[in-house]
């Protein structure tokens, strides 16, 4: 690095760029803050209102059911954050989650280590195949991972004889402890999110992911290992999804084949609600945490207040909510002139 040797003559007009640069319109700054922390603000607001108006919401029972039963699914949103920041998408994570559960349950009959390693290995392998197709064969992430969504579901059907065979986690297996209670899942997931945040913000890999999402051409010209990072990000997403599925299986005590349908969309929704740009280039793990919690709380409230309408209603509200958020995000992006 020759930076210290560089001595361009004293600049006559340094101030020129300062003044212009200093002018970021208030509108844009507000939009940027809303984009990044809007989910957190709404989350605090919703929780505050719900706690004040409902007697059942702020109970430990309810909170533990929000946290414990959902925590592993949130890991999908963690992986999805990385993928979306690169400007990609991974639709295969819902099917991978289910497959991970079945593989975990299957493996647990031969030991806890296998129960953990088998899903992780399959997730990593499938993820890197997807990554290679996207990075090297230049296929669209949407198509490749849609193939994953369908293909993995098919694999799952084959493994379980179309759902006829259910693999149970042996009652005495230590594997069950990983998914039990409220705290174990929450701590595991919190640790994963913390590691993810570190990976995204404090490593060159993380910087590469963000850079390629922001301007892939520029990232290449800057000499960043774009193709490698692309493979790795799908590998990461697949591994996380399979691992989360295995832990989910541990919690349920069996590999449930019908689980995971549409989870990829919930994960995408959480990430986008958390302020990550669907076009890539900007986003944060913290935002995704707010996003998953907000969605979980809202689902909880819907179940609570509108239970008489059934779960179909939940999905409708879910979709409507996502539409509103994406619309908002589009407007915010436009205000910030990100397009």
């Amino acid at each position: 690095m020759t930076s210290t040797a560089l001595q361009p003559a004293p600049t006559p007009s340094g101030a020129g760029s300062d003044e212009r640069a200093a002018r970021v319109p208030v509108r844009e700054r507000v939009a940027s803050q809303v984009q990044r922390h809007g989910a957190l603000a709404v989350l605090v607001l919703v929780v505050a209102i719900a706690s004040a108006t409902s007697s059942t919401f702020p109970t430990w029972n309810n909170i533990s059911s929000i946290l414990g039963s959902n925590a592993f699914v949130w890991v999908l949103a963690l992986g999805m954050t990385f993928v979306i920041i690169t400007g990609g998408i991974d639709l295969s994570v819902g099917s991978m989650f289910a497959l991970g559960g079945v593989l975990g349950a299957y493996g647990s009959r031969h030991g806890t280590w296998l129960a953990i390693l088998l899903p992780l290995a399959v997730g990593a392998a499938w993820g890197s195949v997807q990554g290679l197709l996207i990075a090297k064969a230049r296929m669209a992430p949407f198509i490749v991972t849609l193939v994953g969504l369908l293909g993995l579901r098919g694999l799952l059907q084959a493994l379980t004889d179309e759902g006829a065979t259910t693999y149970l986690v042996p009652a005495h297996s230590w594997f069950r402890h990983l998914g039990a209670g409220t705290w174990t899942p929450v701590l595991i997931v919190a640790a994963l999110f913390a590691l993810g945040a570190l990976l995204l913000t404090r490593t060159r890999f993380g910087a590469t992911l963000t850079a390629m999402g922001g301007n892939e051409h520029a990232a290449r010209l800057m000499g960043l290992p774009v193709a490698r990072a692309k493979v790795l990000v799908y590998l990461l997403s697949g591994t996380l999804a399979a691992g989360a599925g295995a832990l989910g299986g541990a919690r349920l005590g069996s590999g449930v084949t019908t689980i995971g349908v549409g989870y990829e969309l919930t994960a995408i929704a959480s990430v986008v609600i958390g302020g990550t740009l669907l076009t890539g280039g900007a986003g944060s793990i913290g935002g995704t945490v707010s996003g998953v919690l907000l969605l979980a709380v809202i689902h909880n409230l819907i179940d609570h207040y509108f239970s008489q309408y059934g779960s179909a209603f939940t999905d409708t509200v879910n979709g409507g909510f996502l539409a509103v958020v994406v619309l908002l995000q589009t407007l915010l992006s436009r205000t910030q002139q990100l397009e």
Binding site: R204, A218, G223
Partner: peptide
């Protein structure tokens, strides 16, 4: 300009060569 507009100025300057 072939840089990444959404990332910080410092990041852009050091992408791929960040001090660690």
């Amino acid at each position: 300009v072939n840089l990444v507009p959404l990332m910080s100025v410092a990041r852009n300057l050091f992408l791929g060569r960040e001090p660690r």
